[in-house]
Simulated scan of single mutants.
Amino acid sequence: MFRAQRPRTAQLTPRQGEGPVTGVALLLPGGFIRSRRAPVKAAELGLRGLAAELTERGRPYGLAVHLLRYRHGGWNGTDADTAVDTRWALDELARRHPGAPVVLIGNSLGGRAAFWCAGHPSVVGVAGIAPWLPSGDAVEQLAGRRVLIVHGTGDHSSAGAALSLEYALRARRVVPDLARYEAPGGNHYLIREARDISALTTGFTLAALGAEPAPPTAGAGAVCARLPARA
């Protein structure tokens, strides 16, 4: 007889960081528009450097860094599996770290989940790295949150830069200080720009949590500032 397979469950990686938790960075990796298979491990590897920098710079402030492992590798239409798992993770983090504010950091597919779930009461900031933001996605849930978007101008994937620009322009109605940076010529994977994006995103995260002063932003009314290089 064949044993029925147990349904996969979403999981949070063990906390990176130490000491009492005063804030949380939740990393949401990329994936596919449609897939019921297990997530691809390579998507996690792309966030490894960012996780390390968040852990190191956030250590003095009690920052807990977690990565979410989804049940499925895809969004899957109206099921919105990635967003469902992200909401579960936010509720679980509220249970583990009561009262700790959360910054959502999503790459590609994970970027859409981050923006969808920004209205959760624990969330104070949302960062999207080459986020997949289809036309028509809601923006009202961003009110009161800090927002960062980083995209390569050479990203012509289904999560292209033109979509995040359109989204940012609409989101300005509810997030006047939204910051959106472009990496000239950068493709969807932004490998060459990874160190600069890691530094920018870490600074944004710590500022959103009140741990460090806010880094320079794209400026009022601007949504196409060039990605600042690491000092």
Score class of each variant (00 low, 15 high):
residue 86 T to R: 00
residue 75 W to H: 12
residue 124 V to S: 15
residue 89 A to H: 06
residue 111 G to T: 10
residue 118 A to V: 04
residue 127 A to K: 11
residue 116 W to E: 15
residue 119 G to I: 02
residue 99 G to W: 13
residue 99 G to C: 13
residue 82 T to I: 10
residue 105 I to T: 07
residue 117 C to W: 01
residue 108 S to E: 08
residue 111 G to A: 11
residue 85 D to V: 02
residue 74 G to K: 05
residue 87 R to Y: 07
residue 84 V to S: 05
residue 71 R to I: 14
residue 75 W to D: 15
residue 64 A to L: 06
residue 113 A to I: 00
residue 103 V to Q: 05
residue 77 G to I: 12
residue 93 L to S: 03
residue 62 G to I: 02
residue 118 A to S: 11
residue 100 A to G: 11
residue 81 D to F: 08
residue 125 G to N: 09
residue 106 G to A: 10
residue 62 G to Y: 08
residue 100 A to C: 12
residue 98 P to S: 14
residue 123 V to T: 13
residue 120 H to E: 05
residue 69 R to K: 15
residue 115 F to R: 04
residue 83 A to C: 10
residue 96 R to H: 04
residue 88 W to M: 05
residue 72 H to E: 15
residue 102 V to I: 10
residue 76 N to F: 11
residue 71 R to F: 15
residue 74 G to N: 09
residue 123 V to H: 06
residue 92 E to C: 03
residue 119 G to N: 11
residue 67 L to W: 09
residue 111 G to K: 01
residue 76 N to K: 12
residue 95 R to N: 09
residue 93 L to I: 10
residue 112 R to S: 15
residue 66 H to T: 08
residue 74 G to Y: 01
residue 94 A to Q: 13
residue 97 H to P: 01
residue 127 A to I: 12
residue 97 H to G: 01
residue 122 S to L: 10
residue 92 E to L: 05
residue 68 L to S: 00
residue 107 N to C: 11
residue 100 A to N: 07
residue 93 L to F: 06
residue 109 L to H: 03
residue 98 P to A: 15
residue 105 I to V: 14
residue 102 V to K: 04
